[in-house]
Design a protein around this nucleic acid. Structure first.
Lengths: 311, 311
DNA sequence: CGGGCGTTGCAAATCGATTTGCACGAGGTC
DNA sequence: GACCTCGTGCAAATCGATTTGCAACGCCCG
C-alpha cells in the first residue's frame, strides 16, 4: 500500500459510489446503517484520510491561518504565535508562519504567497507595507488582523498601544525628576520603534520640553545594537540620565553598555524596555519594562479571525 | 473585480487557450513572442496569480514544510524555526508550525493532518511517538527529519547528542571533585529530559558511582518547575553540591531556588543547564550551559529536507 | 389502485491549474 | 512533388474530493 487510498478505493471496497462515501463521512445526507457500516469498515481497512488539498479545491477553505512577523526568533513573537495557536487549534486551524525581517519585499512576497494559497485568515505584523499594498494584494478576500494602524477602519486590529505605553513610561520618568532622557528606536520608518518614539516625543512636548537630536538613536532590535547605541550615548560628554529602548533586547544590551562604561543602573542611568519578555525578569539589575501582553494579543487576534472566518 | 482572476480569464483576455497561458508562464513549451507578449499583458492587467491549491492538486507538491515542536514559546524552538526558515525560504518553501505540548494525541493529530495536507517535508521533535506510529502515519511518503533516535535508520536525523552532552557535563563536574550531583529531568518517558538523564547516569557509572534515587527529580521544562524541584532538593538534610537541569529554563528556576535558600552559586551549588538560550547569558550569576546549536539544527534539517524533496 | 412522499444511492459537474496527444502550416531536403 | 521536421496552439484528461439533480424503490393514504 505504497500510495494513499483515495475515496474511490474506499468506494470500490465497500461496493458503493464515491458520493456515498462522502455522505457517510460528512453526514450531509442520510445513508442507511448497513451501507454506512460497510463504508466505515472500508475506511478503517484502507486507512483512508481525505486529501486536504482536493477538499480545499472544492470547498475553498484551507483551515489555515498565516502569521507574518519580522523575526520569529525575537522572543515577543513566539509568544504571540502561541496565543494565536491556542485560540485556533481547537477549531482545527493550522498556522503558517513567516519571518520577513521587516523587509518590504519579503512582507509583500509572503502576503501574496499566502493569499494565493487561499489561507482563511491572516495576522500581520507589517513594518513596511501601506494600506494600498493591502488593498491590491489582499483585497477584501481574506480576513486580516493587523497589529498597527495600517488600514484602520477596513480591517480588524488588535490594538497594541505603543504610543500610549511609551508616553506613560516617559511621563513616569519626568515625574520622578529625570528630564534628560534618551530614546533608542528601531530602523527609521514604520514599525513599533517609531510608534513608541512618537509617544516619547508627545510626553516630552506635554512637559514643555524639546527633544534633543542627539538623544534619539537607532538600533535594529537586537541586543548587540542596543549595546552599541547606548555605548555611543554614554561615550559623549554629557550622558543622559535615562534611556528608553524600543524593545527589551536592546534594553538588555543597554545594561551591558552601562556596565562596560562603569555607569550604575538605575542609580546613574535608568533603563526602560518594551515587551516584558521572559529574560527581562532574569537579568540583573532587573529591567523596567513596558509590558505588551504578547500572548493575549495572539489569542485575541485568533478569536477575531475565527469570528470573521466563520461569519 | 471582487473575485480573483483565473487562468481562463487571462486566456480569454489574450485570445488564447488556458494551455498557452500555462506554457507562457512555465516555459515548458515554446510560445511565439507575440502571443507571449499578449499573455503577459493580460496577466498584468488582471493581476492574475495562479491558485496554489489547484496547482498542488496537479503537481502533488505544496512547497510547504511542517515543523512540529512541543512548545513554540519555549525559546529553543523559535531559533530552530528560524534556522529551518532561512534554509527553506530561498527555495520558495513555507513553514507550517504546530505546538503539541508533547502530548501524544496532539503529536499524532498534527502529523496526520500535515500528511493529509501533502506537505513536502516534516521536521519533528516528537516526545511520545514511536517508530511504529511514524510508519503507519507517514509511511515512506514524506521526507522527515527527526531530532531523536526515533526510527533511526529509516529517516534522516539531525543529531542532537543529548546523551553525550550530559555525559560530558557530568564528567566535567566529577573531574573537578564534585560527586554529589543531582539531576532535574523532564516528565518521565521519552524526550530530551530522560535522554540527558541517561548521559548523566552513564558518566556516574563510568566513575564507579551509583546514582542515588533521591538525587533524580522531575520538572516540566518551565522555570517554575525548576525552582520547585531544586527547592525540594535544597530543603532536604544534605543538599547536593551540584545540579544538572535538563534545560535552561529549569536551571534558571534553580538559581532562584538557590537564592531563596541562601545557597551561593556556584560556591555551594553548581548549576548547569542545557540549550544555551539567550537568557542563559543574561542571568546573574551566569548560567553554565550545555549548548545545543538550535539555529544550526534547524538550518541543517532544512538542507537535509531540501535534498530529499528535490531528489 | 394511483398519486404523493420520504429514503437511498449514483452519475455528472465543479473547483483551477498542468500536461499529454494531436493537428495544422511553413520551410527544407532529396 | 513526396516526405520530414519544426514551431505553435488547442482539446481533453487528470488530480481527489464535494455537491447538486435525478431515478428507483418502497410505503402510506385516500
Amino acid at each position: 500500500m505504497r500510495e494513499r487510498a483515495t475515496i474511490k478505493d474506499v468506494a470500490a471496497r465497500a461496493g458503493v459510489s464515491p458520493t456515498t462515501v462522502s455522505h457517510v463521512l460528512s453526514g450531509q445526507r442520510p445513508v442507511s446503517v448497513e451501507t454506512s457500516a460497510r463504508v466505515r469498515q472500508a475506511v478503517a481497512e484502507t486507512g483512508y484520510r481525505p486529501a486536504a488539498i482536493a477538499r480545499s479545491m472544492r470547498t475553498r477553505r484551507t483551515e489555515t491561518v498565516a502569521l507574518i512577523v519580522p523575526d520569529i526568533a525575537n522572543p515577543f513573537y513566539p509568544t504571540v504565535a502561541r496565543g494565536l495557536h491556542d485560540a485556533l487549534d481547537g477549531h482545527g486551524y493550522r498556522t503558517l508562519i513567516g519571518s520577513t525581517d521587516g523587509r518590504r519585499d519579503a512582507e509583500l512576497g509572503f502576503l501574496e504567497d499566502v493569499v494565493s494559497r487561499s489561507v482563511d485568515g491572516i495576522m500581520l505584523f507589517g513594518h513596511s507595507l501601506d494600506a494600498e499594498d493591502l488593498r491590491t494584494v489582499v483585497g477584501g478576500r481574506v480576513p486580516i488582523v493587523l497589529s498597527s494602524d495600517l488600514g484602520a477602519g477596513e480591517h480588524d486590529r488588535v490594538v497594541v498601544d505603543d504610543v500610549e505605553g511609551a508616553e506613560a513610561a516617559t511621563a513616569h520618568l519626568l515625574a520622578s525628576g529625570v528630564t534628560d532622557i534618551a530614546f533608542v528606536s528601531g530602523p527609521k520608518g514604520l514599525g513599533p520603534g517609531d510608534w513608541r518614539l512618537s509617544g516619547y516625543l508627545r510626553a516630552l512636548g506635554a512637559a514643555g520640553l524639546a527633544a534633543a537630536e542627539d538623544r534619539i538613536v537607532r538600533g535594529d532590535y537586537t541586543v548587540e545594537s542596543g549595546r552599541a547605541a547606548v555605548g555611543r550615548l554614554l561615550a559623549g560628554g554629557a550622558p543622559p540620565r535615562a534611556v528608553i529602548c524600543a524593545n527589551d533586547l536592546m534594553a538588555i544590551g543597554a545594561l551591558t553598555a552601562a556596565h562596560d562604561a562603569g555607569v550604575a543602573v538605575p542609580g546613574e542611568l535608568a533603563v526602560i524596555g518594551f515587551d516584558n519578555i521572559d529574560a527581562a525578569g532574569l537579568v540583573r539589575p532587573a529591567l523596567t519594562t513596558v509590558e505588551l501582553p504578547a500572548y493575549e494579543i495572539g489569542r485575541r487576534s485568533g478569536e477575531l479571525l475565527l469570528a470573521r472566518m466563520s461569519g
